[in-house]
Simulated assay, not measured.
Amino acid sequence: MSGAVPERRGPVLAQPLHRPSAGRIAACAGLFLLGAVVALAGALVQSGWFPGGLLLALAGAAGLFLGGARALGSRAGAVAPAGGWVVAVMLLTASRPEGDFLFGAGIGSYLYLLGGMAVAVICATLGPGRQPNGGAVRLGK
C-alpha cells in the first residue's frame, strides 16, 4: 500500500461533504446581507405603487434568490439570501414601542410576505443541486 486515496464509489448522498472554502462562506454571507437589503427595499416599494410595486418587489427577490443559486452553483446560493430576506421581513413586521410600523394591515403586505416566502422556496428548489463528477455516473454511459 502506497498510501493512495481510494476512489469513492457509491451514491452521492453517501459520500462525505467537503468543507466549504472561505470564499464560498463570504459569498453566502454577502448574499445573506443582500437578501436583507432587498427585503427592506421591497417593503418600501410594495406599498408605494400597489400592484406594480408588489410585482417589482417579488421579481427583485426572485432575481436575487435564483441569481445567487446560479452564481454559487448550488442551492445554498438561494437559501442564503432567502434567509436574509426572511430575517429582515420578520424584524420589519414588529411594531415599535412608539406604535410605528412598516407593514400595514392591507392585502399588499400579506401578499408580499407570503409571496416572498413562496418565491424563496421555489427558487431554492429550482437551484442546481449537488451533482456527481465524471461520465460514469450517468445512466446509459
Rank of each mutant, 00 (worst) to 15 (best):
V79H: 00
G53H: 05
G77W: 03
L17H: 11
A124F: 03
A43S: 15
A76M: 11
C123M: 15
M1T: 11
F32M: 11
A88M: 15
L55N: 01
G106N: 14
L56C: 12
L13K: 06
V37G: 05
P81Q: 05
L114H: 05
F101E: 13
V5S: 08
G53T: 07
L33Y: 02
G53K: 07
S74Y: 01
A57D: 04
A4V: 11
G63I: 09
E98F: 06
A136V: 08
G140P: 00
P11V: 01
P11D: 14
G73P: 08
A82D: 00
L92R: 02
L102D: 01
G129M: 04
L126F: 12
I25H: 09
A118I: 15
L102A: 13
V119Q: 02
I107C: 01
L58E: 10
H18T: 10
F101R: 13
A105D: 14
P97C: 07
L13W: 14
D100Q: 12
G140L: 12
A69G: 15
W85M: 09
R75F: 01
P128T: 14
C28H: 06
L40N: 00
A59N: 03
V5R: 13
W49A: 14
E98K: 00
A26C: 02
G134K: 05
F103L: 15
G67Q: 07
V12S: 06
P81T: 06
V37S: 09
P51H: 10
G30Q: 07
S109W: 02
A62W: 13
L91H: 01
V119D: 02
A94L: 14
V37F: 13
Y110P: 00
I107S: 11
G35F: 03
P97M: 07
G99H: 02
A80C: 08
